[in-house]
Design a protein around this nucleic acid. Structure first.
Length: 523
RNA sequence: GGGCCCAUAGCUCAGCUGGUAGAGCUGCGGACUUUUAAUCCGUAGGUCGCAGGUUCGAACCCUGCUGGGCCCA
């Protein structure tokens, strides 16, 4: 009788018996007067019971905390029966509260019906509050109603549900069995709420831009493709909202932000889900260095609200978000990687600063011939900047410190087609990426608003695509036209919300902060 | 894409060198009106992920497949 089908049949039999007794196992219309949290707040933790009271003779009649009657409702998550009395723990979305159902309180007939209720079912109850001998706030039921009969039983009460595959595929079960999972998503909501407040307070306008695009842009990524029938139009799901948000700056919204889903047709990993949530914001008359300051404030504020302060642990290791955060030029990170052995030796700044020197270093180090991603990336690179960026991606990133946020700066212009060139050195752009615990958390730059330069950069992307690079942007003619009407000097930034939530809630996988992560279909 | 690991009852897990499947929880029957993983007695529950192969004999060894996890590129 422990086969899954038989377990269900047993519960279905109880539901049928409830029906036969005139009770709807899916009843409606019971409105609780109080949540569990309401009552826990109303009757704070009582002093521990005196030893003699606990061990002494049982009181004939429990002592009530007040004459008031409370109506509560929730799922039975623990069930301890004694024949003529039952303790159950009820859970609602605010907390858990014990309910004590006694045969002599609810009556013989009602108690017979009550006996068909078990762990997993939803019930409503009415009664006064009391403190048990063990000191626990408890509602003493004077009446109990069946609300929902669960025909599947819950996972094991002690070990719960730990199979990660079931946890992700059946998130509802995960949430029932693992309360800390609900806490993570509650914090996620708090983070998003705080983000909105942070930007609203600073005069940013929240907007919504299209998530189906006709032109691929705003990031380097492979898209999901779809089709609109009535227009017979091929579309891609957006990989970034950037070009639309900057059109709004052209239109006169000097400060805008959008929190929304992006879609990138790439592999899955602990840090990648094909659809993920991104915050992007743009501020006219600001520069990328202004955004560094804003980013520090934002992260520290969020950590204060969610992680208990600017210092916390992630994966058992300390992280300190206290500003100011160090800045490191991309090339210096590559040099460090070479020194630390993450890349072949001999990569010094003079080599990275000179195209011919770097080419000969690549030749002599043998990297250019390697079959791995680094070798392929170097061979695909058509410019000095792309080679430097490839070395950073494939080695420099790993050399960054893990316990402090770090701004990587001095990005090459060739790999940043939407960023403003640095005034002193036009080969690089006014851009930073923020790395924390070795992961990219934000990407920001002063926006390129010179339409002629923008056209040249788009053309560079088109040329790269022609050379076989897959992750390039399309030439966005209308965006160039918008810039020709004039976009004020502007800085913008994107922050990945999922990774932010991972960091602040100490979760190891992006799947732990996305309610329904993409999974291969099961059976 | 490559490497390593995992898949046994509804859940959490044992299962030795190949000898024919075990526990706890859940369920069912019983006792029990202040429990906290309630307790006690009794009882039921299996396509060992799937498909092949080796063997007298496979949960266990081999191959392939499916799903998942970790690492790498």
């Amino acid at each position: 009788m422990s086969d899954e089908r038989e377990l269900m049949a047993e519960r279905e039999r109880k539901a049928a018996e409830l029906r036969a007794a005139g009770r709807n196992p899916y009843a409606n219309g019971f409105a609780p007067t109080h949540s569990m949290a309401d009552l826990l707040a109303r009757f704070p933790a009582p002093p521990p019971p005196a030893a003699e009271q606990k061990d002494g003779p049982k009181a004939a009649e429990p002592e009530l905390l007040s004459e008031e009657r409370f109506r509560i409702a929730g799922r039975i998550i623990a069930h301890r029966g004694f024949g003529k009395a039952t303790f159950v723990k009820l859970r609602d979305h605010t907390g858990e509260l014990q309910l004590y159902v006694k045969k002599d309180k609810v009556g013989d007939a009602e108690y017979e019906i009550w006996r068909k209720m078990e762990r997993g079912d939803f019930v409503g109850a009415t009664g006064p509050a009391m403190i048990t001998r063990t000191g626990e706030l408890t509602i003493l039921a004077e009446s109990v109603v069946v609300l929902t009969k669960a025909v599947r039983s819950l996972p094991e009460k002690w070990h719960g549900l730990s199979d990660v595959e079931i946890r992700y595929r059946q998130r509802y079960l995960d949430m029932i069995a693992n309360p800390e999972v609900r806490a993570v998503f509650t914090k996620r909501a708090a983070i998003v709420r705080s983000l909105r407040r942070f930007f609203d307070q600073r005069g940013y306008l929240e907007v919504e831009t299209p998530s189906m695009h006709t032109i691929l842009g705003g990031a380097a990524a492979r898209p999901f493709r779809t089709h609109h029938n009535a227009l017979d139009l091929d579309l891609t799901m957006r990989i970034a909202p950037e070009l639309y948000l900057k059109r709004l700056v052209v239109g006169g919204f000097d400060r805008v932000y959008e929190i929304g889903r992006n879609f990138r047709n790439e592999g899955l990993s602990r840090q990648h889900n094909p659809e993920f949530t991104m915050l992007e914001f743009y501020q006219a008359y600001a520069t990328f260095t202004d955004l560094m300051d804003l980013t520090q404030r934002l992260f520290v504020e969020l950590a204060g609200e969610v992680a208990g302060g600017p210092t916390f642990t992630y994966g058992g290791r300390p992280v300190d978000l206290s500003p100011p955060w160090p800045r490191i030029p991309m090339k210096d990170a590559v040099v460090t990687a070479s020194t630390k052995g993450l890349l072949p030796g001999g990569l010094e700044r003079p080599v990275l600063d000179d195209e011919a020197a770097l080419l000969s270093w690549i030749e002599s180090s043998g990297l250019g011939a390697r079959a791995d991603e680094l070798g392929q990336g170097l061979r695909r690179s058509a410019s000095h900047g792309e080679r430097v960026a490839t070395l950073f991606d494939q080695g420099g990133e790993a050399s960054l410190p893990g316990d402090r946020p770090i701004f990587v700066v001095d990005y090459p212009a060739e790999t940043s087609p939407l960023s403003r060139r640095n005034d002193a050195d036009p080969s690089k752009v006014d851009r930073f990426e923020l790395f924390i615990v070795g992961r990219e958390h934000a990407n920001a730059f002063s926006e390129l608003n010179d339409p002629a330069d923008q056209r040249a950069r788009f053309q560079g992307q088109v040329d790269a695509k022609a050379r076989g690079q897959e992750e390039t942007m399309d030439y966005d003619e209308d965006y160039c036209r918008a810039l020709e009407y004039g976009m004020p000097p502007t800085a913008g930034e994107g922050i990945g919300i999922d990774r932010l939530v991972m960091l602040l809630t100490d979760q190891p996988s992006i799947r732990d902060v996305i309610l329904f992560p993409l999974m291969r279909p099961g059976e």
